[in-house]
Design a protein around this nucleic acid. Sequence first.
RNA 1: GGACGAUUAGCUCAGUUGGUUAGAGCGUUCCCUUCACACGGGAGAGGCCACAGGUUCGAAUCCUGUAUCGUCCACCA
Length: 737
Amino acid sequence: MNPEAEERKPSSVDEKFLKPYNPEATEKRIYQEWEESGFFNPDNLPNDPQEPFSIVLPPPNVTGTLHMGHAAMLVVQDILIRFRRMRGFRTLWLPGTDHAAIATQSKVEGILYDTEKKTRHDLGREEFLRRVEAFAAESHDVIVDQVKKMGASLDWSREAYTLDEKRSLAVRTAFKRMYEDGLIYQGERIVNWDPKMKTTVSDEELEHKEERGSFYYLKYGPFVIGTARPETKFGDKYVVMHPEDERYAAYTHGQKIDLEWINGPITATVIKDASVDREFGTGVMTITPWHDQLDFDLAEKYGLDKEQIIDERGCLLPIAGEFAGTHIKKARPLIVEKLKAKGLVEKVDENYVHNISVSSRGGGVIEPQIMKQWFVNVNKPFTLRHSRIPGLAAGSQTTLKELMLHVITSGATEIIPDNFSKIYLHFINNLRDWCISRQIWYGHRIPVWYKKGSENREILVCPDFAPDDSWEQDPDTLDTWFSSGLWTFSTLGWPEETPDLKLYHPTSVLETGYDILFFWVARMILMAGYHLGDIPFKTVYLHGLVRDAQGRKMSKSLGNIIDPRTLIDKYGADAARMSLVIGNTPGTDIKLSEDKVRGYKLFANKIWNIARFIFTNAPGADPSAAYTPVDAERRAEFDALAQDVTKDLEEYRFYMAAEKIYHYLWDTFASKIIEESKPLMKSTDAAVIESRKRLLTEVFRDSLKLLHPFMPFVTEEIWKSLPGTKSLLIVESWPRP
RNA sequence: GGACGAUUAGCUCAGUUGGUUAGAGCGUUCCCUUCACACGGGAGAGGCCACAGGUUCGAAUCCUGUAUCGUCCACCA
């Protein structure tokens, strides 16, 4: 053995290679070394690189712990980041968490009720918010711990929270500007009301469930109308039919008809409108504008009266006569009974299947209601103050909807896989005004103040100060997606013109799950477009959902969430990472199996043993030794692989890149190169030995670099034991073939 | 009703723009503890790539249709 090499390699370092690779003993220590190096912060990178590469972490909700979907997201992003960092970019990956207003509040309300049998009203706004904040803080700490365990190389010095001071200022500023441009307005419109959580819910937060029930055919004067909800029919005084329906040709638009209804005689008005489906039921319907979106639209179209039937708790109002105050669930059978007694029921179809809307957060059955709420107008033209968006000049007129369409159709932002572009555009084309006010407590309070006792509700919108006692703040909070819509730039210091904002925005890539394309991606495009006149990111990479063994979505409500820490503890973070990237194609779901993770744990050990072979059989390699023709060929093989892997990474084919390195190291490097080295190292020709030593050492070293974004811990640990290495592998330069 | 995706080994899934013999992990059969590694090595079994047509010199890959499963959107008065 070369005595010099002996010196550089204290025996204690070599000793750990005599045992199988132990991730548990390694990972925490390595992560600490990375953090202490400061290299997660782009300001500290060696050689002060100039070209930026930035990603904002989709902030996990502080509703508990991370699941495997988060883990998969972290892996893909960390691969992108580590790759770019090694390629010499000024690489920023910015962490943060999301207060997730309604989700977090509903979680804490659940705990509060389970443990103390109390509601938020028992505690009052202030005390309740203290509880939520304590819960959020605890979740945050767990989440950060989990994120670090995955090896994510995030710049913690820039960590943000959607509800912290800076982000709150951004939210209030954004609100004010949009209000002043008339893009935020207060209006009485039909909204999704959740009677359980007593708040509005956005269209995207609804789940549709099939329900089997009865469908009633009711006699309505000369007509028969169909309904699944007789309890909403008290105020129905408009009867609608298709203008070309010959069965009802005798009736004219606007005609009044006296008829006997649930609680006595009423006068109905005939409306003729082509939106009625002649094939459905009897081709005639009555409308309930207060509690149905389409009925509301009809009422607006013809200027019809709208009456509220059901209150905010789901109980009937005085218009229901004897049923007033009764919950709709209880009232329905009673009402049907009365209708039958009056001879108004023509027939009942018992096996009617229809969809009901349920809040995906609180689980309450949604009751549409007309309410005074705050909305973002997506169709109102406004003047773009400044613009860096190709094809949209500063000073031009546009609408938020057009803006959201343009960013994708113009290719300014690219969505991977591209079939989601179509889905996105379809969604935007059908977008309605966005209801942004919520009647919950946890979140950004709407920055609007009303003059106390003022008849005209004098309004003050102020982002940066609280007015005096003669003003009263709007009690509502903002939809959580309002603040996350600002995420790409609020995290970089906006509304202040910070150097970070200038350098890192627009961000390079947004990597997230396809399930929040509408919730979030669309809103970020809206917000960045309006406030900055820019795109929020150049590329959107949508990963699939991680599902459980049965292919079910992992969710809190199903209770099938796997804590990534369990897998890390058993198999190591590197193995968990590999199993989450291999087979993970964009837009397609991935099923998690523990066997797969175990397989990659074996791979980590394989690398470990390759290292041991090289340390003992090829010490003190001479970098200037000449390659034999065979070794030159081996080197060329590796260079081809490196080129391939680089291309795959640049084109977002992480799964392929990972598999290629895996196979190269196992089937080529270990099985072929090492095996053929054994006889070669006994050669009598010193040149053959020196060439092979150099090949083994250099190709292995470069292989570690290629593998590092995928398996950062084991590669960094081996790197430190390589002769002649000074800096950490995370800032080594990527192999350039 | 509309759109999109999937269907490949016993199981879970890759297969980048059509191109030799279709791959991986796990499982499975047989052999092997020789000094990188039994968390290993070697050898093997296992596939009409959902089905039916078509394009092509050539199709798991492109086109048309069918079936089954899944997802999203809309609607259901």
